[in-house]
Design a protein around this nucleic acid. Structure first.
Lengths: 295, 295
DNA sequence: CGAAGCTTGTCCACTCTTTGTCGAAGGTCT
DNA sequence: AGACCTTCGACAAAGAGTGGACAAGCTTCG
């Protein structure tokens, strides 16, 4: 098979205009193709690889000079034949998470999430894209259509994105405090984490305690911290008994404490107050109740 | 490696508008980025760390001037004559995490972590502060000195900080790919997440799959993704059997695959290659091996 | 209490740098 | 001969630098 390519061929392979190809060589020396006797450039596979790498970096927002330095300093010796393809411009792609499980590429994952995330405010993003997309991902996972590793990889990426959003909320001194987390055994944090972000953005001092918190610890935290309310997620049917235990323990220890439930199976607990299934609306409504009535 | 970032990148990484970035430099001299030939600012990792620390302080209610002084006094000043050096008493407070469990204050948690984080480069931070501090936290937890909710709360905060650090590493196109995660049943992600950050900073394309990944899924991922190596954390003694199963499954499916173990109980697995207990050294050494030998 | 003053983030105008693209003049390949 | 390539200069749009201006918030003083 041919191992050398002319400019036109290289341009077609990389998707970079031939003019730009020559300019990158002249200005940054990112490649140095050998020449034919007549002076024509002859690119080999390594050159194509470096050019695709540089193209990807530039597409990710790097300046051409930095990208060239990165490609030149970074070891680009890998025997890679894969080519990062352009993500099609889409407006409402709920299967994006499912697709991202196939090719475990951290850069693409981060970039795709950033794009979706930046399209609108957080509450709309969470209600109209994130939760439906996570539902699709869960369904595909149950059908065995995505690998467990892929699901873990994408979930970890979404977790990172939500965590960054939570840390990015400026703190509200003196705001009512709300404890948010999952009951013992519950480990699907994504929904309750997204709700924490929305609640913090609504002006609440959120104490996010994560998943798998036993009933006793809920009681201890609710007693020592004196939160204005407690939010427990019910992401799965098998979490219902543990949530029921937790709500009962909290009710007996602090009967006046406001205990709210969220998540897909909140109705099956038959205790506590329900937040409903609109994350943004629930967060603003709860924040309104707590700040209006500081009793 | 010492990556440099343009204003746009620095702004994206820190969440601070580019205008404010320049203003903080002009008014308070909190950073002094080197310039390109054309005069463009080039921020390094230390500058990004100082800016995030200052951002956190300002977000916590500090005035910009005080925050800048705090950040400047906490680290060594580079460009100009050395200030009257005050080695603050808080130089290596390993019990900080334990104290933070008492009062579940999200703002204090974030600010404290940012301050410690900004004191040095990530590898030193991880080896000399984070891992020892997590060990102290675990010991205090076993002695019953910290509440479970407090431990969860602080762990979630550290998780967020590490996640942000992982997402902040620029992608290395064409770099060797390494799968990093925990075996089935393992759920203590903090150590393996910190290692992922160090490995990504060393130029590796890290695929972080998180915790609780069954052996079959490890095999599927290692087969379809063809990583150059696989890193499995062994954070607790009870994780040893699951790790052993995973290593055995990987060895039978892909005998030539490089499988490495990290974490406190790596020695007890009696299989795979050991990474040792210096996180930074292990990351750079592994990255060196993989980039030098692309086979 | 109001006015003056300081702080701080944002905006604007203007200049310089970077970068992709184009055209002209001429050489190479089939 | 015609299609393709090379070098070089020029150029416009985007991005980034500088310094000044300004409004909102807070402090201080009369």
């Amino acid at each position: 098979m041919p191992c050398v390519y002319t400019v036109k061929h290289a341009s077609a392979l990389t998707g970079i205009p031939a003019d730009t190809l020559r300019m990158w060589e002249r200005r940054y020396g990112v490649v140095a193709p050998i020449r034919s006797e007549g002076g024509y450039r002859l690119y080999d596979d390594a050159a194509i690889a470096r050019l695709t790498a540089m193209h990807a970096l530039v597409g990710a927002g790097w300046s051409a000079r930095r990208a060239a330095e990165q490609v030149a300093s970074g070891t680009t010796l890998g025997p890679l034949g894969d080519e990062p393809e352009e993500p099609a411009a889409k407006s409402d792609d709920l299967d994006l998470l499912v697709r991202l499980t196939e090719d475990l590429d951290a850069a693409t994952l981060t970039r795709s999430l950033d794009e979706v995330f930046a399209r609108t405010d957080f509450e709309t993003f969470a209600d109209e894209w994130l939760m439906p997309a996570l539902l699709r991902l869960g369904q595909a996972w149950h059908r065995g259509e995505v690998s467990v590793a892929g699901e873990h990889f994408v979930s970890a990426g979404v977790h990172r994105r939500l965590a960054a959003a939570l840390d990015a909320v400026p703190p509200h001194a003196g705001a009512p405090r709300v404890l948010v987390g999952l009951a013992r055994g519950s480990r699907h944090e994504l929904g309750v984490l997204a709700f924490s972000v929305a609640l913090a953005r609504a002006g609440i001092d959120v104490v996010y305690v994560g998943g798998d918190l036993p009933p006793d610890s809920w009681v201890v935290a609710a007693t020592t911290q004196r939160p204005a309310a407690v939010v427990i997620g019910v992401p799965a049917a098998e979490d219902v008994p543990a949530v029921r235990d937790t709500v009962a323990a909290l009710a007996s220890a602090r009967p006046e404490l406001l205990v709210l439930l969220g998540g897909g199976h909140q109705e099956r607990v038959n205790a506590g107050e329900l937040l409903g299934h609109s994350l943004g609306a629930a967060a603003t409504s709860l924040a309104g109740r707590l700040t209006a009535d500081p009793a």
